[in-house]
Design a binder for these strands. Sequence first.
DNA 1: TCTGCTCATTCTGTATACAAAACGGATAAA
DNA 2: TTTATCCGTTTTGTATACAGAATGAGCAGA
Lengths: 211, 211
Amino acid sequence: MRASDKAYQELREEILTWRLLPGTALSEIDLAERLGISRTPLRAALARLSLEGLVDTSRGRTGVVSDVSAASITELFELREALETAAARLASLRRDPAVFERLAERFEAAPLLLKRGDVDAYYALVADFDAALDVALGNAVFRGALDGIRLHLARARRIATDNLERLIRSAEEHRLICAAIRDGDGTFAASATTVHLKASLATILATLETR
Amino acid sequence: MRASDKAYQELREEILTWRLLPGTALSEIDLAERLGISRTPLRAALARLSLEGLVDTSRGRTGVVSDVSAASITELFELREALETAAARLASLRRDPAVFERLAERFEAAPLLLKRGDVDAYYALVADFDAALDVALGNAVFRGALDGIRLHLARARRIATDNLERLIRSAEEHRLICAAIRDGDGTFAASATTVHLKASLATILATLETR
DNA sequence: TCTGCTCATTCTGTATACAAAACGGATAAA
DNA sequence: TTTATCCGTTTTGTATACAGAATGAGCAGA
């Protein structure tokens, strides 16, 4: 693996897990020394993070970890709703019904998982859903746009202290989306996606308020 | 201006204007010599172009100018429809009616421009419309996604030999969108945007067929 | 004649040295 | 006391040298 890829993955992980907090200055010299590589591949990693929006280079010469504010999350979710409702609609046209039937069943069983405390298994299920959506979409350009959103979402989700009740409702919302896609009902799938996203955003914003 | 920025702008311009054709190999050594800079800033420029999708580095070690096929354009327009219909809907909620009234008037007068042969003035008007949409959106994240689309669209549009009749219909389609946004009718604005994009895509694909 | 291997060439990936520019602090003047 | 300017320090931006890897040609063997 290239040193620049290694640096990118390491820094991305640290940003997404909030070990590198928003506003942290990213000095090339310090980071290169800490990661044990030279500045050349490190610069490539920072450039990539900057283009993906995790690093902000617009203010001053030194890059800083980009901000996560209520305003920026709200903007992110407006874009997310546009993309995911359209994705759900398109996936409804092209899906393999059996795939989404199986996912619907798993989401129906998810409350049991959650009541056992296995939150990781639930998030793995959501990841499976995202992957199935990508396959059903059959559009690499669209998938690239979705991936960009998911990157920022992964960071925002870390601050939302999901409680059990919210996660159980989230599972039911996902079940509805899967059932709609399974049935080829794009309009319903889009509406169910909107419902889910509004609730998710509200949860994240509420968490932000109390901090 | 930094050498890397200069290289990025130059290469982007050459790709968008088809002076660098899809499939062209982009050797770092050759390009650095031609642009009169060293490989270090050139690599930064190539990395940026790669992340934006104008350069494809997935196959082999050497980057090549990314492909423009009917399939990739169709995928691009699926994403574009998702983004622009949502943008039109959101802009309808937040627009300054006077701005879009003025744009609607200009699009109504555009056929006169076009019949005089002033195609550049028409494309400038479309650019003004895009800018007004960005302002009305009031969402920097969303705008970034739209800019990514417009980059690829600029390249695709170069191969569509727009005839006068198509451009006149395009002006009328834009006038409808502006009127809908002016009136705050988001649903109509989204529908009119869909109509416009379907016609644009058909024109580009038809041009591709005949080549 | 075709296939597979070897070797040379060329390109990319990385490190480092140097240049230029920007930031911060200190000092002096208003 | 405040502000502006100068200078030192630090950081980024660029060039170049070197190492590693991949590709293609050429040759040998089947």
